[in-house]
């Protein structure tokens, strides 16, 4: 895949985000043979462009972290993308629907490491030993592709649908919570719309951080201390509408919420 094509496909997905206009997936017609490796090259170019625009990376986010989704997409590894500063919504604040294409929300458990983690061979225990805090979070995903219809390489190229994150302010020590058994509810206007438990993410949310550490170690990168890490959706994603009050509760950790305006 030459530089020219990477630049062209990066511009294609980046413009969709900037213009808030959904696009046909890359693999439909533009480039049907896109591989996972090539998709990460596009994502890297996309991230480079955002950094050049002056935006800052807040932290990584994991996707395709449930067994069901992995089976459905026929893959062995989860995927990762990056949350940027312009995507952050304060706990209790509101978003305007018009700033998004067709946003959905997922409840997640966030991690903050107290020391760097360098793969390969990072285990769940290594992650727990290195973790300073866990916290409740809501991820707002907004695939740039029509109807969230994409293949794995498509979604990787699209920074794994990243468009928003709300971090709760209940920070907890990981040793004080059985993270795989944390019960989660996602409510909209007081009505539970989705529910699950920590184990929904790769058997244990810390496993998501371990997989990320091991995946990026192949590129000579490590997971940095102090960055919030979103470990992946604990339930299916729920579509947002104007007037929604979205609240996620994580047993033994806390809650996080936001409003949706027109």
């Amino acid at each position: 895949m030459n530089h020219h094509l990477i630049a062209e496909l990066t511009e294609y997905v980046h413009n969709a985000e900037k213009d808030k206009k959904e696009i046909e997936k890359i693999t439909a017609q533009l480039y049907p043979t896109l591989t996972i490796e090539e998709a990460y090259m596009i994502q890297e170019e996309l991230i480079k462009q955002k950094l050049e625009q002056g935006y800052k990376i807040v932290g990584p986010k994991m996707g395709i972290t449930s067994e069901a989704k992995m089976k459905q997409m026929n893959v062995k590894d989860p995927i990762y993308g990056y949350i940027f500063d312009y995507m952050i919504v304060e706990d209790g604040d509101f978003i305007s629907l018009s700033d998004y294409i067709h946003p959905k929300v997922e409840p997640e458990i966030g991690f903050v490491l107290g020391k760097d983690l360098e793969g390969p061979n990072i285990t769940v225990q290594d992650v727990l030993d290195a973790t300073e805090y866990v916290f409740p979070a809501i991820e707002i995903i907004d695939s740039r592709y029509e109807n969230f219809n994409f293949t794995l390489p498509d979604v990787i190229a699209d920074n794994t649908s990243a468009r928003g994150a709300v971090f709760g302010t209940n920070l907890r020590n990981p040793e004080d919570v059985a993270l795989d058994m944390v019960g989660v509810t996602l409510s909209i206007n007081g009505k539970v719309q989705a529910l699950g438990a920590g184990a929904a993410v790769l058997g244990h949310p810390a496993n998501s951080v371990a997989r990320y550490a091991n995946m990026i170690s192949r590129k000579g990168q490590k997971v940095k201390a102090g960055q919030p890490i979103l470990t992946g959706g604990l339930t299916e994603a729920i579509r947002l509408s104007a007037g929604d009050f979205v609240q996620v509760k994580l047993g033994g950790i806390g809650e996080v919420s936001f409003f949706v305006k027109k």
Binding site: K56, I88, E90, V112, Y133, T169
Partner: peptide, 10 residues
């Protein structure tokens, strides 16, 4: 600028 509540907690 751009400090969030979460940054404060950290």
């Amino acid at each position: 600028p751009n400090i969030t509540s979460f940054d404060v907690l950290l």
